[in-house]
């Protein structure tokens, strides 16, 4: 196991003040090793997206310590240690597909000559090599999301954060995208933190599933996915896969009833 890319100790997050105060997260301890694929799963309102955004320094924790890639989250963001993919692709309409992938490279001051080469490499990686000159609105939802993945990986970050990236896609596209993400993950060696509310998705993709419960958001369980690293259609039909799906489902149920009692 390599050095952890994410280390959270006793993280708490409270939104608002006074009567409007909401405790989104409490006592989060989490360690993500380099090269891991970790899914955060839980009911809506369990703070899984908030936890992801804390790692990305898009929000700041109220308490606890958080180390990302060996530094403060803010520093990690400034050093561009992570790329992020949101639920909506958030592509810029006025840029071609290739120029969208070049956006981070432009901001980071990559030399003019290097940017197109890099962008094309990334588009090849997500199998959109033929669409470089298209505009985002000419692509399907799944293709747009692949452009967003190419953009997030264009500067080769150590960490890829994905916030329900396939939530808006239909089931068929979704499964194809999962396969795609696994392939990209295998080829780049990036660590991935993946927020989802789909149990099969979490099991299929991850090396580890972190199960969360709501009000306040806490980690209720962690399940190591001991499926073979190479995953395909057969994986989705393997008995062990179903066992793990049931295990995650049980953990979610347990977490839910646990939080209701408290």
């Amino acid at each position: 196991m390599s050095a952890p890319v994410v280390e959270a100790r006793g993280i708490g997050k409270v939104f608002g003040t006074g009567d409007a105060e909401t405790e989104a997260l409490r006592g989060i301890d989490l360690e993500i090793a380099g090269g891991d694929f970790v899914s955060l799963i839980g009911p809506s309102g369990c703070g899984k997206s908030t936890l992801l955004r804390l790692i990305g320094d898009l929000v700041s924790p109220t308490s606890g310590t958080l180390v990302v890639n060996g530094k403060e989250p803010g520093q990690a963001r400034l050093d561009r240690d992570y790329g992020i993919v949101f639920q909506s692709a958030t592509l810029l309409d006025w840029r071609s597909v290739q120029k969208n992938v070049e956006l981070p490279l432009e901001i980071m001051g990559f030399p003019d000559a290097e940017r197109p080469t890099r962008a094309r490499e990334m588009l090849d990686l997500v199998q959109l090599g033929g669409f470089a000159d298209h505009h985002p609105w000419q692509l399907s939802g799944g293709m747009q999301q692949r452009v967003a993945i190419a953009r997030a990986l264009a500067f080769r970050p150590a960490l890829l954060l994905m916030d329900e990236p396939f939530g808006a896609l239909d089931e068929m596209t979704r499964e194809a995208m999962q396969q795609e993400v696994l392939r990209v993950w295998g080829e780049t060696g990036t660590s991935v933190v993946f927020v989802t509310h789909s149990i099969p998705e979490a099991v299929f993709l991850s090396t580890r599933v972190v199960v969360m419960s709501a009000r306040p958001g806490q980690i209720s369980d962690e399940i190591v996915v001991d499926l073979p690293p190479k995953r395909d259609l057969d994986t989705r039909e393997a008995p062990r896969y179903f066992e793990l799906v049931i295990e995650v489902r049980e953990a979610l149920r347990h977490g839910e009833s646990g939080s209701r009692e408290s």
Partner: peptide, 25 residues
């Protein structure tokens, strides 16, 4: 779009970069 601002923040873009690449278009 707040998502675009968030994207720019994740890329540690300066306010003038945000103006040039997002706000003006």
């Amino acid at each position: 779009d707040p998502a675009e601002l968030e994207l720019m923040r994740s890329l540690a873009a300066s306010p003038s970069e945000v103006t040039r690449r997002i706000r003006i278009p």
